[in-house]
Computed example of a mutant assay.
Amino acid sequence: MRLTDEQWVLLAPFLTPPEKTTKRGRPRRDDRTLLEGILWVLRTGAQWEKLPRSDYPPKSTCFARFQEWNDRNVFPAVLGQLYELLEDRGLLDLREAFIDGTFSAAKKGARMFGPTKKGKGTKIMIMVDANGTPLAVHTDSASPAEVKLVQDTLDASFGFDFPERLIGDKAYDSDGLDADLTEIGIEMIAPHRKNRKRKTQDGRPLRRYKRRWKVERTIAWLQSFRRVRTRDERKAQHFLGFVQLACILILLRQISG
């Protein structure tokens, strides 16, 4: 997968190598070519050894750089910078946001996964703004209910501003969640569960629920990256790194229009 020059200009400052403490060793391989190799794996879902040698550096070099950037928390830093850029350009709408979770089947050997009716896997929680732009992403075991992962998703926000309203499906209908979000200035909007006795929502706020397709569209964008759709990483942090990279590409798409 190739990056445009405009995209590379935005990403390059965050990929600068740590200072060397010795002059020994081989020269560092080109960051752009290595990143494009990593993005090829993200897009295709192929094993590292399947990287086309005619187009990209060796698998060991690409994986080592991916691991280095992941360990240095480069991807969250990029997401934060892109968030600020979108905000400066007036491309974020925080009057309302949408939250939902999606399931990624985990292959044998993966850590931090949970059993569900769909099998063993990892849950990806995502929050998007009124335009469907990703605001936060969080990965966890697939076992916990989504309502229990809302705070962790908010904590993983790319920026510092919370939306005025957070809209979810019936899974987020919870008095406890309503109270917790009210304390930080967020109104939770979700349809009532069938067994709810005390009504907390009226028809007017729930009209916003009709726009929930925006988070479903963003989830579809995420799942277009095969390395996200099926988890192949043994380490949870590596899988999160790929999910963050997918969000970076989605934000770059929003910036470039």
Score class of each variant (00 low, 15 high):
E84T: 12
E84R: 14
L85H: 10
E87K: 15
R89W: 14
R89C: 00
R89Q: 11
R89Y: 08
G90L: 09
D93N: 12
E96R: 13
E96N: 09
A97R: 05
F98D: 02
D100N: 11
D100Y: 06
F103I: 07
S104L: 00
S104K: 04
A105Y: 03
A106P: 00
K107D: 05
G109A: 00
G109N: 01
A110Y: 06
G114T: 02
P115D: 09
P115H: 11
T116W: 01
K117W: 07
K120M: 03
I124A: 01
I124S: 02
I124G: 01
I124K: 03
I124Y: 05
M125D: 08
I126D: 00
I126H: 00
M127S: 04
D129P: 09
N131V: 02
L135Q: 04
L135T: 00
A136N: 08
A136P: 02
A136T: 06
S141D: 09
A142T: 07
S143Q: 15
S143L: 13
S143G: 04
D152I: 00
D152M: 14
D152T: 08
T153P: 13
L154V: 03
A156R: 01
S157Y: 13
S157E: 09
F158Y: 13
F158L: 05
G159S: 05
F160K: 15
D161S: 10
D161L: 15
D161H: 14
L166F: 04
D169H: 09
D169R: 14
Y172S: 12
D173Y: 03
D175G: 15
G176F: 11
D178V: 09
A179H: 15
D180F: 11
L181P: 06
I186E: 01
I186L: 11
M188V: 13
A190T: 08
P191C: 07
K194F: 04
R196Y: 06
T200W: 13
T200N: 10
Q201V: 13
D202I: 08
G203E: 09
Y209G: 05
Y209K: 08
